[in-house]
Design a protein around this nucleic acid. Structure first.
Lengths: 339, 339
DNA sequence: CTGAAAGCGCTTACAG
DNA sequence: CTGAAAGCGCTTACAG
């Protein structure tokens, strides 16, 4: 039976080698003779020895911990991403230390201190913006930061997003092709790059087609705000015949409001979301939406941080992944387009 | 400008005190004169010093890290719990190291090793079972384990759940009071205590009322399985007039199937879930469900681990929190009951 | 209250 | 390949 805590020294004693030898056997790439390896492995097994990650971290300067700043978990996009991120990182020998953040910018500032206290090797920040001051501090500390699903103004940070401007454009073009005349936009939070980019793409495509949006309002990425916006839009004499909503999470609220008014999404009013979270495909919503390829975004983010950690040279990078419009029944499908 | 890494020795030098003094100033409860505190604080501020948590962990034996084993994040119950857990722990100076687990028992076994490598102070395992062998190992290592939303056969682990047997009973009584004649149960995974307990309570209440369930099947906590079960139940000549589903996540799938068949939940067939995740109150579902009070479950779990960590004596405990039936429109409401 | 010193469990030059 | 030794950044008795 293994005892509470076994150290490399105890293994060394049992194996009849030096403590350094034990360490080498457990350090990938270090040299040890086959005989030593065998003796050590046997002793370690017998004692139930496993290297103490924290001690290793102290001397090597690598904790194998990635700080993940996350918020807004009500939006199904993030739990899904979180799970994938954790799996991908686990597979490469890292683990995630979670920091739940307030959704505002200033909330993150205090977190960085704590993050650094734990000597994390890198930081992935999902769904939060970061001041460039913060970026600078992390950089000075030599900790790579990757923004996930959020861009950044100014230099300093890597980030991975989907092609949001283009996504917004695609949605507008789809809606225009569908013959909609009064297209409204309940935008993603205009304090975030994703919200702004999607809106910019949407407006650009409208302009290019010589159309003006029926209305453009900020849904703040909030169910409540989006629902209020939708109610507002529906109450006038003429109402929109299509609404592009800045993300799926808000789009569900909008659909709920539409139905509350006795209208049918996809017939009376087309609704298009952004993300393609699992719920979007469920029977109750069947939401047409611009899919953000989470798996590829996750892969990119993981590659980015780990590359910056493991090969110090690796420069920052901005990765943009293209999304695809997923056609379902919440929006009228233009003739000739196939589901 | 702070430099990359500042140590207590550097602060000591600048402040003109010993390194031990610096350490004391940053150790709550350690004694230092007002003058020393001031000199040290000033120097620390100037240099941008913060204690290295890992170094502190090494010597003190406390990492202030809680390992969280989690899976099944598609079920909105868990992201919600995760966020609350993280917030509660953060507030008390701990952080969560995430381990995503396969939903099976054996998957967790390997994780425990990794968990212990990081010298976590405690473990919270959500939505996973644990072999008693595993429990024993953690115990031997002196690491308290708390099962969240899962019970355990045999001794060794603390756990917090809602009152599942009673919850199942309440649902049955509600359905019986509603005058339903053919009540089916798509149960939670029978490999889990929650699934078994809810079913047991349900069956007991049925028996007590002299009723036999229309059918009882295992939904495995899976959308797909639950949907298949629902289709099965609906296709015969006589179909159930009520279905108690083992959790909300499956209940949504069941409602989707019911509507696909042109039936209306709450009119043609009553559906009752378990959990009361946020989605249950959204317009598209309005699911009647037995609420698990996540906030109280989280508080209890956090208290339990921290107590076991901070006062070594604290014994294991099994905490059961009562839930409440939330009446919405997915199920017929018995006369006299109020929403 | 305060400093010198030992030690937490490792990794990593440094000699051999 | 291998061992002795230094050192990672702290906390904590131990004297004073």
């Amino acid at each position: 039976m293994a005892k509470e805590k076994v150290t490399s020294a105890e293994v060394a004693a049992l194996a009849g080698v030096s403590q350094s030898a034990v360490s080498r056997v457990f350090t990938p790439g270090a040299s040890a003779s086959a005989k030593t390896v065998e003796k050590v492995r046997k002793a370690a097994e017998q004692l139930g020895y496993r290297p103490n990650v924290l001690a290793r971290a102290m001397v090597s300067g690598r904790s194998r911990i990635i700080g993940l700043v996350v918020a807004y978990l009500e939006n199904q996009f993030y739990p899904v991403a979180l799970e994938m991120l954790s799996n991908a990182l686990q597979k490469r020998g890292y683990h995630i230390l979670i920091f739940t953040a307030p959704n505002s910018t200033d909330g993150v500032d205090g977190l960085l201190e704590e993050l650094m206290d734990y000597q994390v090797d890198g930081i992935i920040a999902a769904s939060v913006s970061m001041s460039s001051d913060l970026a600078a501090r992390a950089q000075r500390a030599g900790i790579p930061v990757v923004l996930f699903n959020r861009g950044q103004d100014g230099p300093g940070l890597s980030h991975v997003t989907s092609a949001n401007v283009e996504g917004g454009r695609k949605v507008a073009e789809f809606l225009i092709a569908g013959g909609h005349e009064r297209i409204a936009h309940i935008a993603g939070w205009q304090g975030s790059s994703t919200g702004r980019d999607r809106q910019a793409g949407f407006l650009a495509a409208m302009r290019a087609a010589g159309k003006r949006p029926f209305a453009t309002v900020d849904g703040m990425y909030s169910r409540e705000v989006a629902a209020a916006c939708a109610r507002q839009l529906l109450q006038g004499g003429t109402r929109p015949d299509a609404i592009f909503v800045g993300n799926d999470h808000m789009a569900f609220a909008v659909m709920d409001v539409i139905r509350d008014q006795g209208l049918v999404p996809g017939q009376d009013i087309s609704v298009v979301g952004y993300d393609d979270v699992p719920l979007a495909s469920w029977g109750a919503y069947r939401l047409t939406t611009l899919r953000q390829p989470v798996n590829r975004m996750v892969e990119a983010a993981v590659d980015l941080v780990l590359r910056q950690i493991e090969e110090r040279d690796a420069a920052q990078d901005h990765i943009e992944i293209e999304g695809e419009l997923i056609l379902r029944s919440s929006a009228r499908i233009p003739e000739g387009w196939t589901k």
